[in-house]
Nucleic acid binder design. Structure first.
Lengths: 339, 339
DNA sequence: TTGTACGCGTTATCAT
DNA sequence: ATGATAACGCGTACAA
């Protein structure tokens, strides 16, 4: 039993395809009895409209593209989950691609999505995205686009982000209020705005509390991994003036710090307090459990889709679109790695 | 500058759309100079063929559907990653849906994918899938389908799985060889074949080593969570004959066990050894680190796509399809929670 | 070598 | 109330 089409249903009933279409879509101008007959036969044949044909006809695919820099990552998985959940609730499906943090993939995947005629694109930049032609091409095509999390001011579109600067500021202030005098920061290379903002928030909080920022205890990691966190811990411990607090820009690094300090028998949080970013699953499991920032990935995904759909609808109605900058609230999760 | 079509390019050049099409697709029967002119203009206009139209024309969408029971889950994220990576390498894109372990979602999403005219579907069942009409409908439609991880023998299609029985057997044997005499098992409800097989492997290993299986130390959890692992630990500790080994069917439970034993000051692995399943990120972080089974999710995703593509191609050529049952190798990761 | 005509499945418009 | 026709954009068999 092959896939039934409007045409086949029509022929079987001896009526025209257009009437069948109208009957199935509940148009008012179709006879009650024919409507009945059509709907019954369609049901028994398990007819489903070919959405490719529908897309062609109505010039929309009900598909959105989602590019993540990392598919195996607690935060981004939560974003993805929010995206697919919200999309489905609004009648859209999601094509998922992972740039694997490579800019060549990012370029290629934007092309793929344009070719697939998705109705809109959600994109988080790789850490190596420093040119924007491939992205601005999307904008120039008037393809609805929303950047999330890793964004750039060089692209003119809506953006959904964490307020990294504020939350890094808050976290640093928390450490200070709990008595930390010398707080180190582990950041990544200053490519991504996320990393920059966390760094600035950290510095600003120090300044606000009359602590002079000391660049010698700001460490740049090569990779956001546990091992790297351990390596940097050894560096920190060589400091003459003892460090008593660490703000790591992501959980894995913070956990590396904790594990290394544990190995050396240095007490957390009594001697050193540690804060991470993401509230990933490991943070509850490590001992002591890690104080961290929950970034509400699901909400970010949801907001990103909602913003994108707004733009899609506006464009469709030829209305002017105004780009939005949305801030998703974060939450500090206090656990046992801080006093 | 609106999206260029074959027609527009043709008009601009004063030739017919079909010639343009041929020129762009490098047909042999088109003049060299016209080919040049066409390709140049197409490039300058940044023409990309409308893949919706292509899909309609060629009766294939180059899209595959992927349904996961859980989008925020280490193992399934790895499967997803393998899927999208392999799909892209073969010119396919992936629509991702999460059933959130709800059977109603599973049903709805299979319908969505059929409507979207995907070329094939990858599905892992929910733990509550006990009827199979909605899935067999897909099979009856001759839509290529591959079940992965959570499968059912009641569906006639290709399947990609972990050899759960064997690996549970191996893990149990490992505990026995290391001197464990009384090994508890924490399993889920006996709905999913994964859980059943791990349970059977555990029992078989005991038997093979002359240990009588004792149902009173096989615990059924309500949820695969850390908290539940803790709760069950308390139950285990009430046993008259002291338990000295635990095989938990998933990492979270095993970690719950470890954390609770730590709280009570019971030594791991000296007094009790613990083994989990999945090699999720937490297993490296918990103290002592958890011995577990790496399920190579990426490979599973890769295999699943390859199997599906094979079926898609066979069906396209009207060749007979033979269903495959593929076993993805696992690997035991020995850490510090076992002797 | 180039162009014409048709069809993929659907739906909107216009006639009947 | 129903149907014929055209169109969405592309690709291809066939005609010129």
């Amino acid at each position: 039993m092959d896939k039934p089409t409007l045409k086949l249903i029509a022929k079987e009933l001896g009526i025209s395809p257009s009437t069948v279409s109208k009957a199935l879509n509940n148009y008012p101008d179709v006879g009650e009895k024919t409507r009945q007959r059509v709907q019954e036969l369609a049901a028994s044949r398990k007819f489903v409209p070919n959405s490719v044909a529908q897309s062609l006809r109505q010039q929309e695919s009900k598909l959105i593209g989602f590019i993540t820099p990392n598919a195996v990552h607690y935060f981004f998985s939560n974003v993805l989950n929010g995206v697919i959940h919200t999309a489905q609730a609004n009648g859209y499906s999601v094509i998922v691609l992972s740039s694997e943090d490579k800019i060549e993939f990012e370029k290629e995947q934007l092309e793929i999505l344009m070719n697939k005629n998705v109705d809109g694109i959600l994109l988080s930049l790789t850490d190596h995205t420093t040119t924007y032609d491939h992205i601005n091409k999307v904008v120039a095509r008037k393809m609805p686009l929303v950047l999330y999390d890793k964004i750039s001011k060089f692209v003119n579109c809506s953006k959904v982000t964490i307020n990294d600067r504020k939350i890094a500021h808050d976290a640093t202030r928390y450490l200070i209020e709990r008595g930390c005098k010398r707080i180190a920061h582990i950041r990544g290379a200053l490519n991504s705005i996320t990393i920059i903002d966390r760094y600035l928030g950290y510095k600003k909080a120090l300044k606000a509390h009359g602590i002079e920022a000391d660049e010698s205890i700001v460490y740049e990691c090569n990779q956001p991994t546990i091992e790297e966190g351990k390596r940097i811990t050894d560096l920190m411990l060589k400091e003459k003036i003892k460090i008593d607090g660490v703000l790591a820009f992501t959980d894995s690094l913070a956990i590396g710090v904790i594990l290394r300090l544990n190995e050396l028998g240095i007490k957390i949080p009594e001697e050193i307090s540690v804060i991470g970013f993401s509230n990933s699953v490991q943070t509850r499991v490590v001992s002591p459990s890690l104080t961290t920032i929950d970034q509400h990935g699901f909400d970010m995904g949801k907001k990103a889709v909602e913003t994108l759909l707004k733009e899609i609808r506006a464009r469709k109605k030829k209305e002017p679109v105004k780009f939005e900058n949305i801030d998703v609230p974060t939450e500090m999760i206090i656990r046992n790695s801080t006093r």
